[in-house]
């Protein structure tokens, strides 16, 4: 068991919300380098709000978020951009960007005042294009892409930003099963091979159980966190949804509709 001190990102007694409105509290988790973590929970429980807090896009209410043992809120905007990258549910504002232009924007935190690309920057863009199978699509405009392709482009952009931490808000929505698995496999490879800490929110609990190293369940009370096996043994998934509709099958790690 790795000690708490060596964890890359830690949240302690975190409470999130907007202004005076509390959305969720009592959130605790810690992730090491190279770990893939899913955040699951019912609609409206605060998954997106948590992502925005972790990404520094919105202030937390109370508690601590520390990255590499320093406080998240204390990081300057430019340091934050070199620490974590995000993939949001919102579409890019301009759909007229080409795939390559969009991915190149990920290098912004490293370029000079006018955005000149060094050979290092170009190398990162090429690697990202390669890792997400986008080489043939590089001159395509974003409005010409399918949902799955666009999602790959947005994740590739986050990879090009070359941050130790990547946050993704529902990267698999609107995709069919094949493309869901494709995206999650690519994320898993990115985490394990490139040693990135990756946190994403999802509704694909059965896929998350199979692919993730850790899962955080937002249930509005204790918010259990652990490996998929631990959570199954402690019967946390059974309590996720009202039991009259679906039941959790611990043997297969998936939900079944009650007949």
């Amino acid at each position: 068991m790795v000690g708490e001190a060596t964890k890359y990102i830690k949240a302690h007694e975190l409470a999130i919300g907007y202004g005076k409105k509390l959305v969720a509290n009592n959130i605790n988790f810690a992730l090491g380098t190279g770990e893939l973590c899913a955040i699951v929970g019912v609609n409206g429980i605060g998954k997106s709000t948590l992502m925005r807090c972790l990404g520094g896009l919105q202030p937390k209410l109370s508690g601590d978020i520390s990255i590499s043992d320093s406080d998240l809120a204390a990081l300057s905007p430019s340091n934050l951009a070199k620490t974590l990258s995000v993939v949001l549910t919102e579409q890019p504002a301009s759909k007229n960007l080409t795939v390559q232009e969009l991915i190149t924007l990920g290098r912004q935190p490293y370029t000079n005042w006018i955005g000149t690309l060094t050979s290092q920057d170009k190398k990162f863009v090429e690697e990202s294009l390669d890792a997400f199978l986008l080489k043939e699509l590089r001159f395509k405009k974003c409005h010409e892409l399918s949902d799955g392709q666009l999602q790959r482009v947005l994740i590739a952009r986050a990879m090009a930003q070359d941050t130790p931490l990547i946050l993704l808000d529902e990267p698999t929505t609107h995709l069919d099963l094949y493309h869901k698995v494709e995206i999650l496999k690519l994320l898993q490879r990115l985490a394990h091979r490139n040693k990135k800490t990756i946190i994403f929110t999802t509704h694909e609990i059965d896929l998350a159980i199979q692919l993730c190293d850790k899962i955080l369940i937002l249930d509005g009370k204790t918010n259990p966190f652990g490996t998929p096996c631990e959570l199954i043994e402690q019967k946390h998934f059974e309590r996720l949804f009202p039991s009259e509709m679906v039941e959790f099958d611990a043997k297969t790690g998936s939900f079944k509709v009650k007949k």
Partner: peptide, 19 residues
């Protein structure tokens, strides 16, 4: 120029790029 390019992704993305 750099900020304008970042705004092409939307304001949240621009903020995450350090703008």
């Amino acid at each position: 120029i750099k900020q304008l390019n970042a705004f092409l992704l939307g304001e949240n993305y621009a903020q995450s790029l350090g703008v």
